[in-house]
């Protein structure tokens, strides 16, 4: 059994002493998340393959396990084409980075376990919301800068969709804030464990439902992937991107998905706590819950067909927002009565 905590503490102490920064923590977290992103794409292709009676990738390496690495190498080697009539090349080049940086910054406030959070800020929940709303800029600007009809339509759809679903998502999280009495993510996890329900999934079941639906829409995944609907818009906002810039968009999408799943684990499923402690691996339960939610995301993609645009807007404004408001009222009642 390896004592992760001891190794981690010594290395971090060393780096803090000589560099004054928790560079190590950040690098570890970003590195691990990048690996997760790579293998989430593999898992997605494999799982959807099996759900559709296919094999999925199985050529590169044993059972196709090296497929994500081959994909990354291929994308890095490809020529980076910038169309000649893009509207301002600066914005065109900047757009994928905005998406990716906004997605990755959220990682810095999410606690993996009690002693592993890069910056434990008091308004952690708001930081994640702010970053997820900023990441939409990448999509919108990519759509505008490409100067292509498909991209433009994708960008337009993305801006409307993200604004509508952001409200529902933030309102769904208000219930969690009210129950925990804090916006600090570590405090939220601790408040969950000390509450009689152990996880906020039980008193916040409506909030959890609204949050998951809004998170899928926020990250532009099926069944809400209208900004990149391949049957209508080819690939939506990133039609004109190729090579490494295309890869950055892909990365940003999966980063967003993983961050949303982490946030759901922290806010609704009790974070790193589990029914029993696994010695040596304090983040075991966090990972189990995270993998389940990622599987859920993939499962939804394989199961549900894409929404029509007016249905999407109707669902956001007429169903999810009233539901989350109702959830806030119910949570207030629980707070008063219990």
């Amino acid at each position: 059994m390896i004592d992760f905590q001891a190794i981690f503490d010594t290395t971090n102490h060393f780096l803090l002493k000589y560099l004054g920064l928790s560079v190590f923590k950040s690098l570890v977290l970003v590195g691990i998340t990048l690996l997760h992103v790579a293998y989430t794409t593999y898992a997605e292709r494999k799982i959807i393959g099996h759900m559709q009676q296919r094999l999925g990738p199985n050529r590169v390496g044993p059972r196709g396990l090296l497929q994500p690495i081959a994909d990354v190498l291929k994308l890095i080697h490809k020529e980076d084409i910038i169309p000649s009539c893009v509207d301002s090349p600066g914005v065109f080049k900047l757009a994928p980075f905005i998406s990716l940086v906004a997605g990755a910054t959220s990682l810095s406030v999410i606690p993996i376990w009690e002693h592993f959070v890069i910056t434990n800020v008091n308004i952690g929940l708001l930081v994640v919301l702010a970053m997820s709303s900023l990441s939409s800029f990448g999509v919108i600007l990519a759509g505008w800068a490409s100067n292509s009809r498909y991209s433009f339509l994708g960008g337009l759809r993305a801006s409307a969709q993200v604004i509508s679903y952001e409200i529902a998502m933030a309102l769904a999280l208000v219930g969690v804030m009210m129950l925990a009495g804090s916006m600090n993510l570590v405090d939220i996890v601790k408040a969950q464990i000390s509450s009689p329900y152990k996880v906020y999934l039980i008193p916040q079941i409506i909030g959890f439902f609204v949050f998951m639906v809004a998170a899928i829409a926020e990250t532009n995944r099926t069944p809400f992937d209208l900004p990149e609907a391949e049957s209508e818009l080819v690939a939506g906002y990133f039609v004109e991107y190729s090579g490494i810039r295309f890869a950055l968009f892909y990365l940003a999408e999966y980063f967003g998905m993983i961050v949303m799943c982490m946030l759901a684990v922290v806010c609704f499923l009790g974070g790193w706590y589990g029914p029993f402690e696994v010695p040596g691996v304090p983040f075991f339960w966090f990972l189990v819950k995270l993998y389940f939610l990622i599987f859920f995301y993939i499962w939804v993609r394989a199961t549900l067909p894409r929404y029509r645009y007016d249905q999407l807007m109707g669902l956001g404004w007429k169903v999810l927002i009233p539901l989350s408001l109702l959830n806030i009222a119910i949570t207030g009642l629980i707070k008063i009565l219990v």
Binding site: S133, L134, S136, V162, I163, E166, A170
Partner: peptide, 11 residues
């Protein structure tokens, strides 16, 4: 950031 950068500017 949430209100001005995230919502108003997107609009």
């Amino acid at each position: 950031i949430i209100v001005y950068a995230g919502a108003v500017l997107v609009l």
